[in-house]
Simulated assay, not measured.
Amino acid sequence: MPPSSITPSSHDSVVATLRAAGCVFAEDEARLILAVARTPDELAGMVERRATGVPLELVVGWAEFRGLRIVVEPGVFVPRRRTEFLVEQALAQVPGAAVVVDLCCGSGAVGAALADALTGAVLHAADIDPAAVRCARRNVAAFDGHVHAGDLFEALPGELRGRIDILAANVPYVPSDEVGLLPAEAREHEPLVALDGGSDGLDVLRRVAAEAPAWLAPGGCLLVETSERQAPAAVDAFAREGLAARVAVSEEWYANVVLGVRS
Rank of each mutant, 00 (worst) to 15 (best):
A92T: 14
V54P: 00
R31Q: 08
F85R: 12
T52M: 08
A92Y: 13
R50K: 07
D28E: 14
L43A: 03
T83G: 06
G67R: 13
E64N: 11
E42M: 11
E64F: 02
G45H: 11
A26Y: 05
E88D: 15
P40D: 08
V24Y: 01
L91R: 13
V36S: 02
L91G: 10
T83P: 01
T17W: 00
A37Q: 06
R31S: 04
E27R: 14
A44W: 03
T83S: 15
Q89S: 13
V94E: 07
I70M: 10
L56Y: 04
I33E: 01
A35S: 14
P40L: 04
E29S: 02
A63Q: 12
P40Y: 08
D28P: 00
G75Q: 13
F77A: 10
L34M: 14
V54L: 14
E29V: 01
E73P: 02
V87M: 11
R80K: 13
V78N: 10
F77G: 06
V54D: 01
A92F: 12
V71F: 11
P55Q: 12
V78K: 12
R49N: 04
L68C: 05
V94Y: 09
A98S: 15
A21N: 04
A16E: 10
V47E: 02
F85D: 06
G53M: 09
V54I: 10
V59W: 03
G67I: 08
L56H: 05
